[in-house]
Design a protein around this nucleic acid. Sequence first.
DNA 1: TTAATTTTGTGCTGTCAAACATAAATTCTT
DNA 2: AAGAATTTATGTTTGACAGCACAAAATTAA
Lengths: 233, 233
Amino acid sequence: MKHKDINCDNCFISKSSVFTVLTDEEKNIIRQNHSCTHYKKGEIIYKEGDKPTGLICLSDGKVKIYKEGVGGREQIVRMAKPVGFIGYRALFANENYIASALAIEDSTVCNIDKKILFEMIHRNTEFASNIIKSLATELGFSNNRTVTLTQKHIRGRLAESLLFLMDTYGFEEDGKTIRVYLSREDIANLSNMTTSNAIRTLSTFASENIISLDGRKISILDVRALGKVSEMG
Amino acid sequence: MKHKDINCDNCFISKSSVFTVLTDEEKNIIRQNHSCTHYKKGEIIYKEGDKPTGLICLSDGKVKIYKEGVGGREQIVRMAKPVGFIGYRALFANENYIASALAIEDSTVCNIDKKILFEMIHRNTEFASNIIKSLATELGFSNNRTVTLTQKHIRGRLAESLLFLMDTYGFEEDGKTIRVYLSREDIANLSNMTTSNAIRTLSTFASENIISLDGRKISILDVRALGKVSEMG
DNA sequence: TTAATTTTGTGCTGTCAAACATAAATTCTT
DNA sequence: AAGAATTTATGTTTGACAGCACAAAATTAA
């Protein structure tokens, strides 16, 4: 279910966007060659195996990027927030998507035509450099994650995921509640463990006064302790 | 132990290099701003935490890129072959190295000055595009690996590693012996398992006539079966 | 409201792979 | 060549975590 003509100016305005290095003229070219789409919570933006048609910029909402592994077991690879790109890896590698994207909240995205994007890369070398830097940073993140997920124990993995969510989405006004509301299953799929173990370990953290739980609301009471658990297990 | 003035023309000549899109003039600029270094088997090229000084191109030899994880446990992130780049991720992300590089065979590398490289990216957009594509491909590889290493069982992980080594380094003249000679420990660190389990599982594969073993020589007798084990466990 | 479905929570059991122990074979030293 | 050190090999023990079963709570549907 897609609604056309929705505002996603966010993508062009935000200072945290890779687009900041574009000239006004270049920004206009992109503006003239983009379309906006809205996705309701739970809707799929693209699926593993699909062919990318352009660059997708998340203007508003939250999106999980996940891969289907052995026996359909899901592994969340990345969590996207506005303003950030989605599906750019496959686009730049000239491959089909190797992961799927799903809106975990109502989300608005901006689609930028592939051809225009590549033109821009050739036109503006600063822009190209920014993309190179983003990809390199993301690759470092992925390499770290590989080691974390394979070597840390359950407690460490979960603690790291909570810190990651905190870093990515920040806190609500109370300064402690993580600004994202995931199911226990999603938390498990982010941390490479079963849902039961995610639930169990979250409860343990709560009983140790490291976090507090209220449904899907997770509040971090002791960042330091959480960091320690993430490091030491 | 580094020896200066060693030939690494390979890096500029090879058609599989990202440098192919450079003009002769650009190639000369790089040639004039490079230095060659030789490393003996077992020598470290750079260590996790070091600051990159330039782009390193592996002209000859074989190199493993690995991270130290929990309790010093090593995870091999990547295996490099000529002609290929090493340590470019940290350079492009403008970070310190997050992994170490070690020559597993006598190796010759070519060091290209950081400043010259970035100039080249700004000069030649085709070159920049190539780098973007390489990074995006590598990121896909890393994401796949994360899922593989966390979800597949020992047999599947080892089978995948053997296929990976086969793809990367190819066969000796006999058409079946993998052209790289790793210790069982390295194979274990590539496959996220203990050395004992690598040894044990290799023996099992040999007893199933999927591979044959002769010291560090590993010959693949049944690629198909190996692929099946990699897929199914 | 009741029923159905999904999500969350908890205990129990089984198993895969790490950890440990030990020995044989190979490689490196001196 | 003898000894030390490293790598390879194999058996045994242990423990972390998955798998399963089931119950309670929350959400959605009728």
